[in-house]
Simulated assay, not measured.
Amino acid sequence: MDRDAGFRAFVDAHQRPLLRLAYLLTGEVHRAEDLLQSVLVRMIGRWSRLRHVDNLDAYARKAMVNQYISWRRRRDSDEVPSAEPPDRAYSTEDSAVLRIMLRQALMRLTPKQRAVIVLRFYEDRTERDVADLLGCSVGTVKSQTHHALARLRALAPELAPRLPVLDDPARSEGARR
């Protein structure tokens, strides 16, 4: 078995979920592919040390979130300010419209807020899991989640009824154990 077979097996097993995470973080297919590629390139360069890591999937996810946040710090904003909000000629009940609205609102969150929302609610991870992945405290995850949900409600009030309520016992740490 050649030395890269383990890496190829890892990529084969985890590429799709990692690409999904990258897309949710970046909001664009091409940037998601670039993000995943940059993380995988870094991982293969360190593969001889990484193959002994207990949870390579968690390592890759953490590396992806960190790389994404690093990219966002260096990148200028793509947003174009507008004096007038666009006219709304659609029904907010249309699921495609709701997905687009959510994506647009997510793109306006800070990178850390978006990472917390994606990890908590899309990947359905516990606060502890997110804290471990992001290398921060559970309290930071809770406050970032609270601020991100408040900002999403402000940016897209149409989505507010569909956004998670933090007091929901099904979402709490104790309900997952």
Rank of each mutant, 00 (worst) to 15 (best):
Arg16Pro: 02
Glu93Ile: 01
Thr26Glu: 08
Val53Pro: 03
Val53Glu: 15
Lys112His: 04
Arg171Pro: 00
Leu106Gln: 01
Met101Ser: 05
Arg88Lys: 14
Pro157Cys: 13
Glu93Met: 06
Thr110Asp: 05
Pro157Asn: 13
Arg128Cys: 03
Gln37Ile: 05
Pro161Asn: 13
Met64Trp: 01
Asp94Gly: 04
Ala13Glu: 15
Ala58Leu: 10
Glu28Thr: 09
Arg177Thr: 10
Glu33Met: 11
Arg20Cys: 11
Arg125His: 06
Leu35Asn: 07
His30Asp: 05
His147Asn: 12
Leu109Pro: 01
Phe121Val: 08
Val80Ile: 14
Val141Gln: 02
Arg151Phe: 00
Gly135Gln: 04
Arg171Cys: 01
Thr26His: 01
Phe121Ser: 07
Asp12Gln: 13
Val80His: 15
Phe10Arg: 10
Arg128Leu: 11
Pro85Asn: 13
Gln15Pro: 02
Tyr59Thr: 03
Leu119Tyr: 13
Arg49Phe: 14
Gln37Val: 06
Gln67Asp: 06
His52Glu: 15
Gly174Ala: 12
Pro86Trp: 08
Val39Thr: 07
Val130Phe: 07
Val41Ala: 12
Ala154Val: 06
Gly174Glu: 14
Ile44Ser: 14
Val118Phe: 01
Arg31His: 14
Ala154Gln: 15
Asp57Gly: 12
Asp132Thr: 02
Leu36Gly: 09
Ala150Trp: 06
Asn66Val: 11
Ala175Tyr: 11
Gln15Tyr: 11
Arg153Trp: 05
Arg42Lys: 10
Leu102Arg: 06
Met64Gly: 02
Leu98Met: 14
Tyr90Leu: 15
Phe121Arg: 09
Leu98His: 05
Arg177Pro: 00
Gln113Ala: 09
Ser82Leu: 08
Pro164Asn: 12
Val141Ser: 03
Arg162Asp: 05
Ala175Pro: 03
Gln67His: 08
Asp94Met: 05
Arg73Pro: 00
Leu40Glu: 10
Ala63His: 02
Ala175Leu: 08
Gln67Ser: 11
Trp47Lys: 07
Ala63Asp: 02
Gln144Leu: 04
His14Pro: 04
Val80Tyr: 15
His147Gly: 02
Thr26Asp: 03
Leu56Glu: 11
Leu35His: 07
Ala22Met: 09
Gln15Gly: 03
Arg153Tyr: 08
Leu159Ser: 08
Leu35Val: 13
Gly139Arg: 10
Glu33Trp: 04
Ala150Thr: 08
